[in-house]
């Protein structure tokens, strides 16, 4: 399967006059396969939006290269393949929904004969078909976000780039957007999106990249990210009810202890000597949220050292 997005050694340094220069991205290698949903997560200022802007061509990289379906980013040719939803979606507020969608269809090069159908189709996907005549300034935030997705879809692009699509939306609107993304996934569209909603990312994405201070800390599928835990879970029966320096959890007949991997051998030996019966030993399952905090915290500590 070929890559929809590929970046090699991408670097972005923002030169600033009154403050020190800001290194937004450093040596970013990214490979997003066609048909995947790629979730791009990281704290504020991690470089997510900069990466997206480089992919769109709004920002020029300082070094390295970025390709969309093999075309260098920033060229009109590369933008033929993508639909883009900006982070803070603001549109021409004096235009009607259908009118502005038509403008986007024309700019995207949709053939005149297909324009009306495409506009209708895009509005149906986001459930705004009855709002074609409404002015954009009269839409709610959630509706505007859905319009944003409609304009991104107008040319039926094989790649959608969504910058925090659920940001600032109420739970119902978030659910709407999430369902739309899941439906688009079913149509085989590659989706690259940044988000702070880690539970959504966990549910939707095939691949996840964790970005922190401009560097990609981890990238892989959910299982790889969650299994790559520094802790293991030891489950046993009988034996000591308490262990020095460890919290022992009672789960039915079992007792469970979590501890760093490198200490598990010693604990198992100790439990056997104490007459415990070992029931299981497994990598501790974490949520994406836990993994995210752990990975970014560890990275921060390493950098501070």
């Amino acid at each position: 399967m070929s890559n929809a997005i590929e970046t090699r050694h991408l670097r972005k340094l923002y030169r600033r006059r009154r403050e020190p220069d800001l290194l937004a991205l450093e040596d970013l290698d990214l490979h997003v396969r066609e048909g995947d949903i790629f979730g791009f997560i990281g704290p504020n200022g991690a470089g997510k939006s900069t990466t997206i802007k480089i992919l769109i061509g709004l920002v020029r990289p300082t070094a390295g290269e970025a390709l969309l379906f093999g075309e260098p980013c920033g060229t009109p040719a590369s933008r033929r393949h993508l639909g883009y939803l900006p982070e803070t979606a603001v549109y021409h507020e004096f235009m009607a929904v259908g009118e502005l969608l038509d403008v986007h269809a024309r700019l995207a090069g949709v053939a005149p004969a297909q324009r009306k159908t495409r506009c209708q189709e895009a509005l149906e996907i986001v459930h705004l078909e009855d709002r074609a005549q409404t002015l954009l300034r009269e839409l709610s935030k959630g509706m505007r976000q859905r319009f944003g997705i409609a304009q991104a879809l107008i040319a039926r692009p094989p790649l959608l780039v969504l910058d925090e699509p659920t940001s600032g939306l109420d739970p119902l609107a978030q659910l709407d957007v999430k369902n739309i993304i899941l439906r688009l996934k079913g149509q085989g569209i590659t989706i690259f999106f940044s988000s702070h909603q880690l539970t959504d990312v966990e549910l939707i994405c095939d691949q996840i990249g964790i970005l922190h201070r401009g560097r990609m800390l981890r990238c892989g599928n959910l299982r790889e990210l969650l299994e790559d835990s520094a802790e293991v879970e030891v489950r046993f029966r009988g034996g000591p009810a308490q262990l020095p320096g460890r919290e022992v959890l009672e789960q039915g007949a079992d007792r469970v202890v979590r501890l760093p991997r490198e200490e598990s051998d010693a604990l198992v030996d100790h439990l056997r000597e104490a007459g415990a019966h070992l029931v299981g030993l497994q990598v501790a399952r974490r949520s994406l949220e836990q993994a995210f905090f752990e990975i970014t915290r560890t990275s921060g500590e390493v950098e501070e050292r």
Binding site: I56, G57, L58, P76, A77, R79, R80, L82, G83, Y84, L85, P86, T88, A89, V90, Y91, H92, H104, L107, A108, G109, G148, Q151, A152
Partner: peptide, 14 residues
């Protein structure tokens, strides 16, 4: 300022 140009410049135009 209003960021209305971002979605427009994401189109295949120079």
């Amino acid at each position: 300022e209003h960021r209305t140009l971002h979605p427009l410049l994401a189109r295949p135009i120079s």
